[in-house]
């Protein structure tokens, strides 16, 4: 089975019919933030694949010129993930679209299969209809449950909805979930987080350093030198500043110095997992925050790991 570094981060994107999933996926495929992303969809129907961008098509797999691929899940999750694993050396991460009545939180369970690692549950909501849907006789529980299972909620259609609808929806969401709530447009880097494989490559020296912000969000990384204290992780989790949407760390911890521990933040959720023996790579943490988040607060936060 795959060892740690080969695991593909898997992000699940859900939301009821009309919530804007297809638009979001089209945005990811059009601007993948330099990442080669495999998008798994129920059907290709609405995916906007410009003929010029399509490099090849083979059965249920489309390959785009920018390195992204698009797979249909016609044969089910287990089979589709098996197919995607065959592309592991050509892609950086996986995004799975969940059907309009699907439970994204449940689908995210598939991300524990060998070769993959869970990387967040994103749920879209349509500010013009979500509150009515949540009260609907047939689908109310489904919509509420989708939102409740999210790490990150994205309020879509911010270009057509008026401020009253957007703010009303956000206020409503704050009573439903602790998840971080964002409005479209959300850059791919913020939605999906840092590139997994070249985490160390673009970072600076010893002290906390800033990297070029893709678009206008704030991105900070810090190199670590040797195992950190378990207790510092707990402190770090509790002290997360507002505005942080994504963070990822590949570290060693003092009580398991020979293993690679993965720290991961997606919206309101933080996970700490061990994904295999330490591979000798760089120990590094990267955080991505919303525009306007004070850089100093992020620096102070990353410095808590020690």
């Amino acid at each position: 089975m795959s060892s740690g570094p080969d695991r593909l981060p898997l992000t699940v994107i859900g939301g009821y019919l009309g919530a804007g999933k297809t638009t979001l996926l089209n945005g990811i495929l059009a601007e993948p933030d330099g990442q080669r992303i495999a998008v798994l969809v129920n059907d290709f129907g609405d995916i906007d694949i410009d003929g010029r961008l399509l490099a090849s098509a083979a059965g249920d797999v489309l390959t785009l010129a920018n390195g992204c691929i698009c797979c249909s899940m016609v044969d089910g999750f287990a089979e589709s993930l098996e197919t995607v694993r065959g592309f592991a050396d050509r892609i950086d991460r996986v995004v799975v679209e969940v059907s309009g009545v699907g439970e994204p939180r449940k689908v995210a369970r598939w991300a524990h299969l060998p070769g993959f690692t869970p990387d967040g549950v994103v749920v879209l909501v349509d500010p013009l209809s979500v509150r009515d849907r949540a009260a609907d006789r047939y689908v109310g529980e489904t919509v509420v449950s989708q939102v409740a299972g999210a790490d990150l909620v994205v309020v879509s259609r911010s270009d057509v909805a008026d401020e009253e609808d957007l703010a009303g929806t956000e206020a409503w969401l704050s009573g439903m979930t602790d998840a971080t709530v964002l409005r479209t447009p959300v850059p791919t880097a913020v939605l999906l987080g840092p590139r997994p494989r070249n985490l160390p490559a673009e970072t600076a020296e010893d002290a906390p350093a800033s990297t070029t912000p893709p678009h206008d969000h704030v991105s900070i990384s810090r190199h670590l030198d040797g195992p950190i204290a378990r207790t510092s992780i707990d402190t770090w989790i509790r002290a997360r500043p507002g505005g942080v949407v994504r963070a990822k760390g590949l570290v060693r911890v003092d009580d398991r110095p020979d293993d690679r521990t993965v720290l991961q933040v997606c919206g309101s959720t933080t996970s700490v997992t061990v994904d295999g023996p330490w591979d000798g790579g760089a120990e590094v943490v990267v955080a991505i925050a919303l525009p306007g988040t004070p850089r100093a607060a992020l620096v102070k936060w990353l410095n808590l790991l020690g």
């Binding site: 089975m1 999750f77 287990a78 993930l81 449940k106 689908v107 369970r109 598939w110 524990h112 299969l113 060998p114 996970s271 997992t273 061990v274 994904d275």
Partner: peptide
């Protein structure tokens, strides 16, 4: 014990019991 997947219950010592609940966990049986 490092398997954190949902649907993989563990004993008091942290070892999975061997029960795999629902398809995403059953698929761990490769």
């Amino acid at each position: 014990p490092d398997t954190v997947a949902e649907g993989v219950p563990k004993d008091a010592s942290g070892w999975p019991l061997g029960e795999l609940q629902e398809f995403p966990a059953m698929a761990l049986a490769g």
